[in-house]
Design a protein around this nucleic acid. Structure first.
Lengths: 362, 362
DNA sequence: CTGTTAGCGCGTTCAC
DNA sequence: GTGAACGCGCTAACAG
């Protein structure tokens, strides 16, 4: 009855199964993992014992410790999931990541950067981590990950030591789009940017805020726009949503002189700007040209076809996933850089009351 | 130099830190966890040693084994993330879950039910699991979780032994909405349902498919509609998207006699149906009434305000999160049931060429 | 307040 | 093919 006693108390473990099967624990282990030579007869005995004890297989936690791997990759997303997932571009990226990780049957641990209280972020058991869209300062967690020897991949972040970068041509692409507007004769161009700080404070786009910001993507896109329109002013949106774009658009379009074109840093923002224009009785693109970024198809953009910079979001995610996997395998993957393409839709047109020069700058 | 040797090889561990600090391992452990009485001086010594060795703190994997907890809760979502996240209702639920879990600093492990190859789904180290929107057969994984003693919470699933249910009044709510249409005088009502199988096959809504299906939510909503319109025919959509609704709507609206009202099982589907109607030159709600489900605000629904059944998605998610937490604490939480509310918008109106009876059925 | 003693449940040598 | 021993890194009891 002693053997039965150890069965009764708590969950069965490998040792209990092995004992019941009349084999050693190591043999039982091999029978489960299939990672060694075990006779068919022994395996059957072990499996039978497992079934009898209602044993579900080796405990993942113990395996993690022993193997030094938990089979989980963390994905750090800025702030609330709700906000992050509201923008399809993030969902697309995540989908790419999940795709790559799933192929190696790695789990995806969703971590939200809770800011100050975020001491716990690096406390989860994971083998690698992907930083995605991090506008806030992630120095502390990054240092912790490095100390733990956890491979780090960052999508569109400032270059950091020991962090593999997956980049996008944010600056060049935006400049390309801006040049398109310039070629259409626009000179009064306004900017609607993504947030500059983790606090997502909206307001005027002012030099001191830019100087203090570490929001890489936002900054690069501002730079790209100003490469072409050095004096372009603008507003900082409170997030990437149609609503935020609407607010920003109302602001920008009520100024004098009113801009004839607006460069929005995401498609959702661009759509909001279009709404604001329509609200004011302005016609897009006749009275106002609008340029977006991302190239996601948004329900409700109709009847407009947004002129935008199409970025390969899913590929970016897949690349990030592939990169962690490579790092976990001990390889040395190269950082990658993706490029966006200008897709001309129906929301940009020659500047009103001005002949559009066919090319070249003013 | 021997002490140095153990420092050089591999990552430092608690023992190494303790040795360098000249204390025992357990003392060092307490210094980190703060879970016991440690003198300020000793703690300082330990922390100094840790800094010197570049030790990042206790290894989460080892902690998991020792404590029997990994601090991670799995969330199982049907099929591809891309599809799941396309519908805001899922994002809202996930947000609620994340909210509840985050409060206890539990991680959220995203698991996609890969179907056949999904032997790995129950292999991840986690303390509890939430099943969400599972149309496929999850018997095997559920059994595995139970064997492991992992608490299981399911949102809108068939009742299962040992699974805590978080439910929605899918049937009653749909019936309520259907009655609204009935009161408006509609008798020719068509259904656009969510998928019936994991394969997401679209097509005619036929009895044998219903009989074979285990998609709880879909079935309940069908039942609710037929409680009021027993003979209502319909089509099964290939997913929950505007596109799927458009396809289904075209199909349904090209039949004779054409339905005067359509009950769609999600707002996204409903919007697609509206698009299909407009495509055919039909006016909503004059020629066709459309009822949705979910009550999410969708960009692009304008100028319509969808008549729909508003469900408390975030609360549902929060309840699910709270339930796993309670189960992990050894409590016995009650299953919960949420109710939806009919929100009358501008997409339902009296049936054409028919006086709307004020109440009662035909 | 601190040290000692035992494991958590498993995978991996290395012999036989 | 199989078994015996050992340790992954940490923490919960008890002593002192």
């Amino acid at each position: 009855m002693d053997a039965e006693a150890s069965q009764t108390r708590g969950r069965p473990n490998l040792a209990a199964v092995a004992a019941l099967a009349g084999v050693s624990a190591s043999t039982a282990s091999l029978a489960f993992s299939g990672a060694g030579p075990v006779s068919e007869a022994t395996r059957a005995k072990v499996l039978a014992a497992a079934k009898k004890l209602d044993y579900a297989g080796p405990d993942p936690r113990a395996q993690s410790l022993r193997r030094g791997r938990s089979g989980v990759v963390g994905v750090v997303i800025e702030d609330r999931l709700r906000d992050a997932f509201r923008d399809p571009i993030n969902v697309a990226m995540l989908d790419g990541i999940a795709d790559a990780l799933g192929a190696e049957s790695l789990g995806l641990l969703l971590l939200t950067d809770t800011g100050e209280g975020g001491a716990d972020i690096s406390l989860a058991p994971m083998d690698g981590v992907i930083l995605i869209g991090c506008s806030t300062e992630l120095d502390r967690p990054v240092r912790a990950f490095r100390q733990r020897g956890i491979p780090i991949v960052a999508i569109e972040a400032e270059p950091m030591e020991g962090v593999l970068a997956i980049d996008l041509d944010n600056r060049d692409a935006t400049a390309h789009g801006a040049r398109h507007l310039q070629n259409l004769g626009h000179t009064a161009v306004g900017l609607v940017t993504l947030p500059l700080e983790g606090s997502r404070q909206r307001g005027e786009l002012e030099p001191h805020r830019i100087a203090a910001s570490r929001a890489h993507t936002t900054l690069e896109r501002i730079r790209g726009a100003r490469d072409v329109f050095p004096d372009a002013s603008g507003v900082v949106a409170g997030g990437s949503s149609v609503e935020d774009g609407l607010v920003a658009g109302r602001d920008l379009l009520s100024r004098t002189p009113r801009p004839t074109a607006i460069i929005a840093q995401s498609d959702l923002l661009a759509l909001g700007v279009i709404r604001a224009a329509e609200e004011l009785g302005l016609s897009v693109p006749d009275d106002l040209s609008v340029l977006g970024f991302d190239g996601v198809r948004i329900e409700g953009a109709a009847p407009h076809e947004l002129t935008t910079l199409v970025q390969p979001a899913v590929d970016k995610g897949r690349a990030a996933g592939g990169a962690v996997i490579a790092l976990l395998n001990g390889d040395r993957p190269e950082p990658s850089r993706f490029t966006s393409q200008l897709r001309i839709g129906t929301t940009t047109a020659p500047a009103p009351s001005s002949a559009a020069p066919s090319s070249g700058s003013a």
